[in-house]
Each structure stands twice: as C-alpha cells, then as structure tokens.
Design a protein around this nucleic acid. Structure first.
Lengths: 132, 132
DNA sequence: GCTTGACCCTGTAGTTGCTACAGGGTGTAG
DNA sequence: CTACACCCTGTAGCAACTACAGGGTCAAGC
C-alpha cells in the first residue's frame, strides 16, 4: 500500500507518516521501482497503534516505550500498566482543576446576568494549593 | 522575590518566566540596583494561574483572555460574558473529552491481568480493531 | 581581599509534534 | 501527450517552551 492509502486508513497526514519514519517510530518500508514507499499490514497495525495511543494522550516517548514493551512478548505486563496508570492519575487531576475553573466562570457569568460586575476570582480559583 | 524563587514557587523554569514577560503575559517587574528582577505576590498569583491554566490545556492566547477577565474591572458586562462563555464551552468540551479518555483508560487498566505482554490487554486494546 | 560557586542578565538556537511549502519526479485518464 | 493527482526530498514554520553562550553580581570561606 502507498503512503497516501496508509495515511487515509489511519486518519494521519502523509507528512506525519514520513515524520514517524524519520524519528524511528515506524520502520522504513520497502520501495517500489519508482521509489515510492510500499507498506504492508504490519505497518498499518503499528501506525494504528501509534495513532490510538496518541489519541489517548500518550506522548511520542510513551508510545515508543509501549511499542518496545509490546515487541517483547515475554516481558511482564507491569511496566505497561504503570505507564497507563500514571497517565490516568494525571487525567483525574486535570478534570478536577477544570471543574473548579468551570464553577468560577459560571459564577462570573451569573453575576453578569444580574447587572453587576463581580470581582472576578479566576486567579484565586487556580491559585496554588497546599496539597500540590 | 528573585526570579529563581518565583520560578521554584510555581514549578516553572526561570527561562519560562522571562519568556512570559517577553510575550507580555507577565508584567515587567521592578529591578534591583544590580538589574535583577524583583517580584511581588501579585506576580506569584498570576504566574500560578498561568501555569495551572496551561496545564489544563489552554493556549497562551486563551490564558491571556482569561487574565483580562480578572484584570479589567471596568470592562463591560457583555465583554466579560462573551469571553467567559466561550471558555466555558471549551472547558465543558475538555472535561467531556478527558472523561471519555479516563473511562477508556480505566477499562484498559482493569483488564490488565499482570501476565506477560503476549496476553496484555492494554496492548491489545491499543492494537487496530476491525471497527476502526 | 580574593576566589569560588550559585545565582542573575541578554540573546539566540534547539526541542516536540507536527504541518506546510518548494521544487521536483511518476502514473494514469482522457 | 498533457493534465492532474499522487509520490519524493528537504527545509522552514508553528506553539510554547528549554537550553546554551557569554557575561555580570554577591555572599561565604580561606
């Protein structure tokens, strides 16, 4: 399959596929006589994995780690679990922060409707907390 | 307080603080006789806010707008309302996205049987699926 | 009083994760 | 046979930092 087809099949930009190859996330495929990249199903699977992990918010470095781990079938699952778990904790913190910010914005909007410009406490909402 | 102290208090790099000043997010502080930047508590609060907001995925431009909300006390109610409303929508979208992501990651983690990679459900989940 | 080391200054170049050209070659449909 | 969509390499740009290089400042210790 040509690069355009691979890209379309994974909703990736052609340039991004070449970029992944350049940084070593995707192995260089065979070339046709006219020097076009020729991909197989293994490439398709790997790129799908990369895109999906990226979608889930993993950095390229984390993806690289996950790929290395998944290549070594005999290894234990714990490292994979660890990477995902750290990521999950981060997400939980972000949701909590966003919810606090949302409440404050909502309050600002509410006071607006009553014709008064309440002093906006946005800065205080995300002010440093002791637990951090 | 000196730039290093401010940076440490907000887990920011010194260079980043200077960068925020350069792009106008942080007002230029007073200088000591030896030309060192001298910050007060208002800078600390503002920088804390910027860092948290950035962490939550707001662009610097969005942060800039949020800050004008809390800065400009004389602003018209409509302007405040407009800016707040846009960001409220954005926050709701982010919370929804993160929650979906969380659910998925949680499901993936729950399936981890701590066996070997060969049977790792996390890797399997990220692998390409027919329905995609 | 002088050196050592941790800090500060400005300015510029590199990073991440792409994305967008520029300037060219290839392949097929009309 | 020429138009057009696709492919190639290479470089430059984007946001938002981050890391030097090359220099100045200051408190502590000998």
């Amino acid at each position: 399959m040509k690069i355009g087809e691979l890209a379309a099949a994974t909703t990736t930009k052609v340039e991004t596929v070449r970029y992944y190859e350049k940084i070593g996330l995707l192995s260089p495929p065979a070339r046709t006589s006219s020097n076009y990249r020729a991909y197989g199903n293994d490439h398709l699977a790997r790129l799908s994995f990369i895109r999906r992990a990226r979608d889930l918010g993993f950095t390229l470095e984390a993806v690289r780690e996950l790929l290395t781990l998944s290549d070594d079938k005999a290894q234990s699952c714990e490292a994979v679990d660890g990477i995902a778990r750290v990521h999950l904790t981060e997400i939980d913190r972000k949701v909590a922060d966003l919810t606090a910010l949302r409440t404050e914005l909502d309050r600002v909007l509410g006071s607006c409707r009553h014709g008064t410009i309440a002093s906006c406490k946005i800065i205080e909402t995300l002010a440093p907390r002791k637990g951090l």
